[in-house]
Design a protein around this nucleic acid. Structure first.
Lengths: 334, 334
DNA sequence: GTGAAAGCGCTAACAG
DNA sequence: CTGTTAGCGCTTTCAC
């Protein structure tokens, strides 16, 4: 049996209310009393029971984090940003993986609400109607991190993915490419379809370039799947001379496919992508890429959540962080 | 105010005890009653309060996971294994980052105990005496995942790192290398000093090879630090012709350093390492490596923890998982 | 099968 | 400044 606040109270000859006060740093305690109580706490090895505290105070100092897959560096990096700010504000994190399955996402939200989290950070590639409804009926603040909310209902921290995609494609266009392909993750996900693909299409249209059949390739977002893509691309009547990839993992898969087909990046094919991990820098040639500030996305999301949990007024609920285009070696410099 | 078990009881004209029974699947409820209660639960949208339940039952169905840095793919992958098994057994996970700082590790253990986790999975590169003491005095089961316990006090799930290092170096020796260097993470950490370095030294000794001054290089485990290593190695009186690296991130750093110095892997230098991420496969040449079954390490750890939390007898508390040596292109095949 | 009642360990008024 | 007293929402005997 663990030692309780009551044990400390008896030992120190005070009431449990007083012990509670010193534990919670309430200033209304005489220094002498505080010292006596502190000593007893130390001696007995008292450790406050956060569960009891949570029940009594209706706050758990715990936030839920629902992430598609923590083993993906994109989310791992983001989560680290969340965790660091959470620590700073003395919150714990309950972390769950959804695999982007709407049903699972629903269950997890329910589950986290049952655990009485004080707030929730949600990440996914799309928000299904059911999930949206579920989140709308939750009585706690929810922040979307690195996640597109096509209806702008929830507080969100993000970069301008569409604009970034546009800028990336422009790099290729400026190098006089006319035949630019786009290799993407699944279009079932808003971020791929609504942001990156649209950015690509806009940039192409703006430059008066057409997008031939087969230039837009949907993959399952894995290295292995992307590795096979060049085999298809090269058989096109007019194969692309440059490719914009949705992230660095598929860019590297593609690049290795290109190389193993006897071509070279950037000499034969130029390549640009979104950077989610160290991969973009570790391969040779290093990939020219849109760097997504993942850690910051997480940190800012959590900071926003703390404000919301505190009931502070937040003027800007749709936070946009800057991205950076990093010139490296998969696109020739002008 | 959320709806409570009491609201449901009144609505269904039963006692809260009965509602509790149906919520918990207790068979001692007449089917008709169960149905009636279930209907009310549905109608009112009742969701059990896990905090209250935790206080009353003294079980939170939550386990703590203390990890050095979730943004590192090593731990991210491991955590995914933990999380999946946790989900399977209906546990939630509180995830915290320690950055391998013993003081922080202590705080986190305290913190998690305060939150009344039912069990704890701990990961680090070393276990300090204070942390050891802290864990010994905890009243809940603790499992070390992918973490060396030099005193064999705690349940552990691991691979034979020393043996694996030995095997890796042997690959190089079999290719007739006499001058083999070892590039490692910090030796302040048991796993580097006691396992990998010892395995390297044993293999070298066994083959009658000496280890010249400067052949053992300590890095801070980062790509960038490793990138600089070749500049030092090449200035040695007799530069190595092969290198064993503690993990793939530093192996890639080193390899790029080698390449940028005008040499080629594997033609000039052969390279083998522990594989922690997709990096080993994504770079060219692909790295011959010891594959660490990270996901399984996590999954088995969590499974072991569930047994311990259930009070089941566990005969084997030091679980050893097999590793695999994957032949790829940074070591020439014989 | 079901209900009543006693806590779980703590916070939060409210007195004094 | 300190103590008393209700709960927080649920589980868990123990009766019936």
């Amino acid at each position: 049996m663990a030692v309780t606040i009551y044990d400390v109270a008896r030992e120190a000859n005070v009431s449990m209310a007083t012990v509670s006060r010193v534990v919670n740093g309430n200033p209304n305690v005489k220094p002498a009393t505080r010292k006596k109580v502190t000593a007893c706490i130390e001696r007995l090895g008292y450790r406050p029971n956060a569960v009891a505290r949570g029940l009594a105070s209706r706050k758990t100092t715990t936030v839920g984090v629902i992430v598609p897959d923590i083993s993906k560096s994109y989310y791992a990096e983001l989560s680290r940003g969340i965790a660091d700010v959470a620590t700073m504000y003395e919150y714990n994190i309950i972390l769950s993986n959804s695999d982007k399955r709407p049903l699972r996402e629903m269950e997890l939200i329910e589950d986290h609400l049952g655990k009485q989290v004080d707030g929730l950070i949600f990440m996914s590639d799309s928000i299904s109607d059911d999930v949206r409804k579920e989140m709308n009926s939750a009585n706690i603040p929810i922040v979307l991190a690195g996640t597109l909310d096509s209806k702008f209902e929830f507080p969100t921290v993000n970069i301008e993915n569409k604009e970034a995609a546009h800028a990336a494609v422009n790099e290729l266009i400026e190098n006089d490419h006319k035949r630019i392909a786009f290799i993407s993750g699944p279009f079932s996900r808003d971020i791929n379809r609504l942001s990156k693909k649209t950015g690509y299409e806009e940039a192409m249209a703006e430059a008066g370039l057409s997008i031939p059949e087969g230039y837009i390739v949907e993959t399952d977002n894995t290295y292995d799947d992307a590795y096979e893509v060049w085999n298809r691309l090269k058989k096109l009547p007019e194969p692309p001379t440059a490719v914009f990839a949705g992230n660095d993992e598929i860019a590297v898969g593609l690049m290795n496919g290109i190389r193993d087909a006897g071509l070279a990046v950037p000499n034969d094919i130029e390549l640009i992508c979104f950077q989610h991990s160290i991969l973009a820098r570790a391969v040779r040639p290093q990939l020219t890429a849109i760097r997504v500030p993942l850690y910051d996305l997480g940190a800012v999301s959590m900071r926003l959540l703390t404000k919301l949990m505190n009931g502070e007024e937040v003027d800007q609920k749709q936070v946009v962080l800057p991205y950076q285009l990093e010139q490296r070696d998969s696109v020739r410099s002008n």
